[in-house]
Design a protein around this nucleic acid. Structure first.
Lengths: 335, 335
DNA sequence: TTGTAAGCGTTATCAT
DNA sequence: ATGATAACGCTTACAA
């Protein structure tokens, strides 16, 4: 491995000069700059990343923690982060918390120990208090897909309540009077918010919330299947159901099919997230757009602005949800 | 930040002793060990990762390069790598090549510069020669999903030809006599191999290869759609098509539906990869299992064995494909 | 078993 | 503009 020392010898100057041209310092004469660059070229010099981090206390890499790596949602998030980061010549240290509180904490510690310049987190096991304290520390932290009032500026999020509201209202607007709901795990804030959006829409239409039309599932296809099965049992002539995410919606569609219930003719189903495979389904899933990829990119921009001092960047914390109208929902004829 | 120096002062010993207990060296008395651990605890000492890497020339992290991060295939791969690695207390530096030759090369250089202990690559832009040379270097390299004879031991792969053969044979065995094929980009080795498996099966059944039954697509849904459209145009009474991956199969299914062709009654479709959403489709997709997640874990085990000297590990380079029988294929009645 | 001291390859602070 | 030289926080001979 060739070092800065050898470069300096070949270029006939000091270590400092070499370091200066590497770091594009001003106040270095054109002549030495050329000599140094020439020497670097000749020696095929590659700066030692680790040594630089140690000496400068800057790693040019940001730690990214997600609850899990697989699945359409997080993979969309990760690819947004990685792409945007590498476009800025920064790099991602990606790690997953595996949905486990202790692992998430460990992961955060690890990323800090690792001298990450900033942290991008999309987690839900860890508490608000923990995160508030973390944001108070010396390392910049940005949260994706989570809203905590006390650290609003560190959050990139969507209005989940609004999303739940939009989904439900779409069905209500289409003439459905009984709209069922399959929820995510209510320990998760987004699941609670989406549900409360559902309730809000009902209220707006003067419909009283009916407990038997709610199934509390867990965002998985298994949960979605059980949810649809249960709802159908309690309510055989169900005409509309909103699912708190697309996975559950896909499972609900399958159950309907098994029971010879035609979608959307007999029953409308709407999902949430608009993950890429929602288009692959049959019928294509009507759903609520959750712009994870955009949020991920914005998180990177936040880091660029707040840590790497690229000042002209403007940050958008709240992202809009919107209705993606496809084939799985339909007007309901009340006659 | 508290350093090893402060720990040594509080513990009343030298730097080396502290370092020794950190690294679980033998030959350190129980007494000093306790004193040191106690001091670490009291000071809430956290080792500086960067300094350790610099001094020991070992980063405890492995570089992972994939063509892209999103998509079911790579996300399954990444999650396998990350999980297995973190179970071994090693960490992943994940980076994507974005399907671009130069970026892939840059990414590899970056990972090396970054002092990664080993490299796990799943790439296809870069040439065999480049990879052979890379494996000849000082950093251990393991390839997932690629077979290069000269460096067989550095490859974890499936027999794509066998997979293509199995898919085709399944359809042929079911009585279909005309089996169409929608291929991936033939610049990619796996696409070529899968196609040659198709041809092999045809030959075995004494069917001559018919160019009009082959559509050369690119593994995307868009390509799959065009492929199915074209094949159907040339061959309206098509009864069976094998798609070189599940994305294209899902697109082909959609085209069939649009044309009122019932699957599997009128036409059987089989995919390849068995990505998780193939179960969500309707009908559920019959496909060929491609055990990416397992291969990813094996790649990590290879690294553990070859770099971190965990000797008892045994490596499996070739993984089996198998037929996953679901709902999208059916016997064909030739009467 | 323990301590001393020389690295690891940079950056950064001073002089000059 | 340039060059010594001291950090950066740790590992590792080598010596004791």
């Amino acid at each position: 491995m060739t070092t800065i020392y050898e470069v300096s010898k070949l270029a006939g100057c000091s270590l400092s000069s070499v370091s200066r041209v590497m770091n594009k310092h001003e106040h270095v004469s054109e002549k030495t700059k050329l000599k140094v660059m020439d020497a670097m070229e000749k020696l095929n010099y590659r700066p030692n990343f680790t040594a630089r981090s140690l000496a400068s206390n800057c790693s040019n890499s940001v730690g990214v923690l997600v609850s899990e790596i697989s699945g359409p949602f997080y993979s969309d998030l990760l690819s947004g982060v990685e792409n945007e980061l590498s476009a800025a010549n920064k790099h991602a240290i990606i790690i997953s918390g595996q949905g486990n509180l202790q692992k998430e904490k460990d992961a955060i510690e690890f990323l800090i120990d690792r001298n990450c310049d900033a942290l991008i987190l999309s987690v839900d096991s860890v508490s608000d208090e923990y995160l508030i304290k973390l944001c108070d520390g010396s390392i910049p932290v940005i949260l994706i897909n989570r809203y905590i009032a006390e650290i609003e500026q560190n959050c990139i999020y969507i209005d989940n309540e609004l999303g739940g509201y939009m989904a439900t209202k779409h069905l209500l607007d289409s003439g459905h009077s009984e709209v069922a709901y399959i929820s995510g795990l209510l320990t998760k804030a987004d699941a609670r918010d989406r549900l409360s959006g559902y309730k809000k829409a009902l209220k707006e239409f003067h419909i009283t919330f009916d407990e038997t039309l709610l199934y509390k599932a867990d965002y998985t296809t298994k949960g979605g299947r059980e949810g649809m099965l249960t709802l159908l049992e309690n309510n055989p002539k169900l005409t509309a159901v909103v699912c708190a995410n697309d996975e559950m919606a896909s499972a609900a569609m399958r159950v309907a099919r098994e029971k010879k219930i035609n979608i959307p003719d007999d029953c409308s189903i709407i999902g949430f997230d608009n993950v890429y495979f929602s288009e692959y389904l049959y019928p294509q899933l009507t759903t609520i757009e959750n712009p994870v990829n955009k949020m991920a990119r914005m998180a990177v921009r936040w880091v660029l602005k707040n840590k790497y001092k690229q000042s002209k960047i403007t940050i958008q914390n709240l992202f809009a949800t919107e209705l993606v109208l496809r084939e799985s929902t339909q007007e309901h004829d009340n006659t």
